[in-house]
Design a binder for these strands. Structure first.
Lengths: 134, 134
DNA sequence: GTATGTAATGTTATACTATTACACATATCG
DNA sequence: CGATATGTGTAATAGTATAACATTACATAC
């Protein structure tokens, strides 16, 4: 198991901001929102994010260069997590599908590849933002 | 079908560089390699990349902020493409798996989400870079 | 309590990635 | 020709991320 130390002040602040945000936040968004808490430099944010990601509490959305708090609704295992990101409203849904995970693992495994992390990000339109069909 | 115009000079140059590269290249890598061809500004690269990606000739690796030529070995359809990226040597394998594609489509579809594009990137160690086990 | 090692922090500067804005050119089509 | 659309060149700027260094906080051992 990963060592589960208590979060430091900076780490807690960053995590709280992400949890209370409506959607993904960039590191600089976070910095701006934490200036009133004494944050002054990007590195303070990036360092906190690094630890939070290592502990699985935060995910980085590669295609947005932004970060979200982990929803925690999926199996706590080392399954690959996927995201559906609405290009219109920015809403993000997090999910994990074991079949997807297994198939991807199998494909790379057959070639001797050892998977460490994965980014699975689907971009499109959420229901609310889709053009009406009726 | 997507209009298949002939590539312009800049677009061809960028595509050729990507095809002949050993691995993914960043936009600025490309710029440096194309200075002898008259390239002077990042925008010349980014504009060519944009068109090449729209035509499916180039993929962007979100987790690297880099670009690769499409291998063309997978079904030419609108299937989601996946990548295995070695964190050690930078080698990239491109592949498409219909099951993965279908499962992801199903998951988001069930929630009324309309998928437009996807990024599936697995990071880890390729066979050659994995620690020996024998 | 003091020494020591480790992790976290604060700060500045810098590197890397990407886009905006504007001017000019070229091609196609009526 | 005039009108629209696309491509180009250039400069300036915005946005994302890390390197390097000095300092502080805290746990543990002596």
């Amino acid at each position: 198991m990963t060592e589960a130390r208590k979060l430091t002040r900076n780490q807690s602040l960053v995590l709280e901001k992400l949890k209370s945000a409506a959607g993904p936040l960039s590191a600089y968004d976070l910095l701006d929102r934490l200036r009133s808490n004494g944050f002054r430099a990007p590195l303070q944010v990036y360092r906190a994010l690094k630890v939070l990601m290592e502990r699985g509490k935060v995910h980085r959305l590669e295609s947005l260069s932004a970060f979200v708090a982990c929803c925690g609704n999926h199996g706590h295992d080392a399954v690959m997590v996927a995201f559906a990101i609405c290009d219109e409203c920015g809403q993000v849904s997090e999910f994990a599908d074991e079949t997807v995970s297994d198939r991807l693992q199998q494909w790379v495994g057959r070639r001797g590849f050892t998977a460490a992390t994965a980014a699975i990000e689907i971009r499109g339109l959420c229901e609310a933002c889709s053009p009406q069909t009726n």
